[in-house]
């Protein structure tokens, strides 16, 4: 038994202490061991949700992307002419100046 060295306790204290401690088993929830699968399950869930977010995002982007406009043949020629006239080298190196 421990040396008391001047410390006292109330009468019947240890009997009441034991009763209170025993009631811990009745009131506190028991803790069950968590298996390995349950431990890693959250990480799989995070990875799966990340993949799902990426796939959903890609799908939405594809569906909502504005399609490139299709030019008619006339519009394409017009664009080509505009580009040619805007090109300074085209003014210098056209067929009339190269082959006078």
């Amino acid at each position: 038994m421990a040396k008391k060295c001047g410390i006292q306790t109330p009468d019947g204290y240890f009997d009441s202490l034991q009763s209170r401690l025993v009631s811990i088993a009745e009131t506190a929830p028991s803790v069950r061991k968590v298996g390995f699968a349950r431990k890693v399950a959250p990480y799989f869930a995070y990875a799966a949700s990340l993949v799902a977010a990426v796939l959903l995002g890609s799908f939405i982007l594809r569906k909502t992307a504005v399609p490139e406009e299709e030019y008619s043949a006339w519009e394409e020629n017009l664009v080509a002419e505009v580009l040619m006239s805007a090109d300074p080298y085209a003014l210098i190196f056209d067929s009339e100046t190269v082959n006078p």
Partner: peptide, 10 residues
């Protein structure tokens, strides 16, 4: 003792 109770399974 609460700690003992919760650690008992281990």
């Amino acid at each position: 003792f609460l700690k003992i109770w919760t650690a008992l399974p281990s």
